[in-house]
Design a binder for these strands. Structure first.
Lengths: 342, 342
DNA sequence: TTGAAAGCGTTACCAA
DNA sequence: TTGGTAACGCTTTCAA
């Protein structure tokens, strides 16, 4: 028995028969730039509109061997930075005629199976916005022979196009900012220290701190990019040697750290201690936090990604492109100069 | 000239030739339950694994007239509740072999075009988790003749399956909670008062407040579900007649309200005023907020949605199914009894 | 259980 | 510019 669902929509052939033209003509009418007389196209499109015909995208995909779908590999949806990125990205992709097929991966378990789906669906490109889950070799397998872009993370050993914020610039900017405020005893809190993003931010900060002759009172790893990791590490630092300012590897950490310092350690921010983060998520601008942070150029990241996709510089076989985008330090009230301290 | 990208993967026909079986056999080997000798299947699958063959999902879609793709219509990604929902949903869909194709709609502009893409892609079902953007008629057009589920919102005039939290229960629970704490002068803050969700929460709360003989000191509409709307409305209430407790229509509003009351109105929460929200997003449990809130049964919503999808109770032509899921009041420290007030 | 062959609804070639 | 036709890579019938 044929278990296939009955078709409920018109085909090009049926439409053609109704109008009295060839099926090819219908196809051409819907293909921008196809060689067809304007009047014929108009006639077909008009008729199509009245009977509500739309070309079947699946058939088109099979024939054209293009899907106009990009697979988006995500995993850290708890950090508001990623939903914000995903939203912008999918919107821009839609604008140029692509839809986003979500691959929500979780560590362990059936990761392999989830990724093999990525192959079967024949997406035109893969965009990985999951910073942590995919190991190098896995990333390699996922993206080889396929257009692929890695966002917010840079790998050298896998040949994949990367678009990321200039973390070095960010780390330095925060160190400079602390210095200008007169803070001399500063600390760094990583999220996942082994990620490329984490390493870069830390190295840049630590290096600049040394260059400026400041003292690094702590340099610890929260173990994850979470609010609670921020709390825990902040309290650890507060219990240690006197620290004037803390740079957290991302905003979520910083928010947790701020709350803990204020409410559990009894410190005032910024009077007793300055706090800076990284990303500039929406919550950083909430008055309660007013977090000084290094803003990731979200729009730039998205538009650069889309541009690469269109230009094909992320196609397999191309030499690896690594795009570093400049961010900007957003100074709010969580940092202040020594002078304001009472 | 053929502008089609060259194929880079093996086809079933090629694989069949290599093994010396028919192409149908290959197809059957990959079809669970197909009538094929176990040994033959094993042989084929094994060989396929060595040469890294995977069936082309696009061709399969065309032939089977099923895509195993669900279209997910989203729009409010700023509210953390939605990314959390989207994440769980896409994960569960993946578990049963479906991928999620994102349709990120924004009000106005080319809404029509974005939605027509939804038709062309022939998704097996549409899940709408955008509470606000789609008007009734638009929703109608998007979902007619197609399996569809509306999450977190209930409409009566459009025949579409709905899965939502029991907002009535939630509104009443908060009123009861305030009452038990001894609060008698209470206020309500809506996000978008005209949404089904907003109406239900408000009506239930207001009705219960009247039943219990409490005083409704304010009943205002923030105009949107945002942190700033929460701040603004909270200050408005603080400036009005004495209020013991405020119920905000969702958590984001409540967080903004709490911060404004504490930091701008100089009130203590909960000592001077109790605050409750709705959803139970991750931030509600942050110690700084410790927000009492009515928790949406996220897991239940997702599993019920997936169940409907599998059972087909969301197919067109079915009588409309409306599933109301029970939530639970999570009491934290943003609400307290009068007795604790100093 | 197996293989051959006819679709699925397009696109792109080839003549006209 | 047009129409006819062969792909595209599968699934499912139909005979064997």
């Amino acid at each position: 028995m044929d278990t296939r669902p009955k078709r409920n929509s018109l085909t090009a052939r049926e439409l053609a028969r109704m109008i009295g033209v060839s099926q090819s003509a219908v196809s051409r009418a819907f293909t921008p730039g196809a060689s067809i007389a304007p009047e014929l196209r108009e006639k077909i499109l008009q008729y199509a509109a009245t009977v509500d015909y739309q070309p079947n995208a699946i058939a088109s995909m099979l024939s054209k061997r293009r899907t106009n779908i990009v697979g988006i590999v995500v995993s850290e949806m708890q950090n508001p930075f990623y939903p914000a990125l995903l939203e912008k990205l999918s919107q821009e992709l839609q604008r140029i005629g692509f839809q986003s097929l979500l691959f929500n991966i979780t560590a362990g378990a059936n990761l392999q199976e989830q990724l093999s789906a990525l192959r079967r669906y024949n997406v035109d490109a893969v965009i990985v916005i999951s910073a942590t889950v995919l190991s190098g070799p896995t990333l390699q397998r996922v993206t080889e022979g396929r257009a692929a872009i890695l966002i917010n993370r840079v790998v050298e050993d896998v040949s994949i196009a990367c678009v990321a914020c200039d973390n070095i610039e960010g780390g330095r900017a925060v160190a400079d900012h602390f210095y200008e405020l007169g803070q001399r005893r500063v600390a760094y809190v990583a999220g996942l220290a082994h990620t490329s993003t984490g390493r870069e931010r830390r190295n840049a900060f630590v290096t600049r701190v040394a260059e400026l002759g400041m003292t690094l009172t702590a340099n610890i790893d929260g173990g994850e990019y979470s609010y609670n990791a921020g709390r825990r590490t902040a309290l650890e630092i507060a219990a240690g040697s006197k620290t004037d300012a803390i740079f957290f590897a991302n905003d979520i950490l910083a928010l947790g750290g701020m709350d803990a310092l204020r409410e559990e350690a009894g410190l005032r921010v910024p009077e007793d201690i300055s706090i800076a983060g990284f990303d500039d998520i929406a919550m950083a601008s909430w008055p309660h936090y007013a977090l000084t942070t290094f803003r990731q150029p979200l729009d730039g990241i998205v538009s650069e990604t889309v541009r690469m996709l269109q230009e094909g510089s992320c196609q397999p076989g191309q030499t690896q492109v690594i795009r570093r985008l400049s961010g900007s330090l957003v100074v709010r009230e969580s940092t202040a100069s020594d002078a304001t301290r009472t």
